[in-house]
């Protein structure tokens, strides 16, 4: 029996599957590869946000993943399939090491620390010529090559459609893991820490440990996304205008807020919406950023739940219009509520 919930799940899945065929051009397929990578990055930065912290250094963790994966495949002869998890682990390890000292402070102070770390790491990658190629960048990153999968046969991931499907599978599995973690007690605990870290501590939650856990998880998946990015681009540079600059992190936060940060799939909606809209509005030329910017401001003001909150917002408007809410919830006559 087909339930509505499984239909809701299947529709985007089918849509994702059809993209390379439907658009039929490398241009659009490449765009959607970047959409998928950005979905993973934005969904993972939201994991940090769940505990109430805003990391401004997410692009740096993507960079760590990208460079680790690139250097391992170019210089150490690793295959992509091994370099991918290793790059996630490397990114997570760095997050673990800096997480414990950094997450002792919260709020704006944590954001400042992560900005500084992000830029420091980017400068390191930009200057470490022997390892990262420095200003010239790191080129010749191999594509994943061939992989024999039972039932499907041997697939060569050289083409962009094949790489698209590979990215789709890896991003989907990553999102599934993040989803299961969020729906479990980890998610409840994270939200509790965001609500009140003081009370969370008092009921026995190790606040520092759980915030670091979320930070490391997020950075692990940022590393995975970085690795996918590196093998897609085949050329990495770390100058300030590259993908690893601060502006990327700001974009992730923007996608998250536009899509709706309260829901798990908000970031995915936000990324797809903004990136596709950016492509479609290229003809506006110099007015493009004005257009996207004003739209973003409008969404933030008018849609507190983001794009993904639209159905619920419409529902509540309809309910308020057609149903007399007082009839459903009569004023309580609880003696405790009575005040002098």
């Amino acid at each position: 029996m087909l339930k509505t919930t499984s239909l809701v799940w299947m529709m985007p899945a089918v849509f994702i599957l059809l993209i390379p065929g439907a658009f039929g051009s490398i241009y659009w397929t490449s765009l959607f590869i970047m959409v998928l990578i950005n979905i993973l990055l934005t969904s993972s930065i939201r994991v940090i946000w769940l505990t109430g912290q805003i990391s401004m250094g997410h692009a740096a963790f993507m960079m760590i993943g990208a460079y680790v994966s690139a250097i391992l495949t170019i210089k150490a002869g690793f295959s992509f399939w091994l370099a991918l998890p290793v790059s996630g682990l490397a990114s997570g390890l760095v997050a673990l090491v800096i997480g414990f000292p950094f997450l002792r402070v919260t709020g704006i102070y944590f954001s400042i620390l992560t900005i500084m770390t992000s830029e420091t790491l980017r400068h390191l990658a930009y200057s470490w010529t022997s390892m990262t190629g420095g200003k010239l960048g790191l080129s010749g990153i191999p594509n994943p090559g061939e992989l024999t999968i039972p039932l499907l046969g041997t697939i060569n991931f050289q083409g962009s459609s094949e790489y698209y499907y590979l990215t789709a599978v890896i991003v989907s599995v990553s999102l599934l893991i993040l989803y299961l973690v969020e729906k479990s007690r980890y998610g409840l605990t994270s939200r509790a820490i965001k609500e009140s870290s003081q009370l969370s501590g008092a009921v026995g939650i190790n606040v520092l440990w759980y915030t670091v856990f979320n930070f490391v998880t997020a950075c692990f998946f940022a590393g995975i996304a970085g690795s996918l990015f590196a093998h897609f681009q085949s050329l990495l540079t770390a100058d300030s205008r590259s993908t690893f600059g601060i502006i990327s992190t700001i974009n992730f936060l923007l996608y998250m807020v536009i899509g709706g940060e309260k829901k798990f799939f908000g970031p995915a909606v936000g990324v797809a919406f903004v990136m596709v809209l950016t492509e479609l509005s290229r003809t506006l030329q110099e007015y493009q950023s004005f257009f996207i910017g004003s739209l973003a401001i409008l969404i933030v003001i008018k849609l507190p739940g983001g794009l993904i909150g639209i159905p619920q917002q419409i529902y509540s408007i309809l309910k308020n219009t057609f149903v007399n809410t007082n009839a459903i919830h009569p004023p309580k006559s609880n003696p405790i509520e009575r005040k002098l």
Binding site: T189, R191, A192, E195, S196, L199, V203, G204
Partner: peptide, 18 residues
Amino acid sequence: ILFNNFTLVENVLVALHM
């Protein structure tokens, strides 16, 4: 000091963390 935006059940559920 409570988990302000949680329902009452969720408040107690978090307290059952241990």
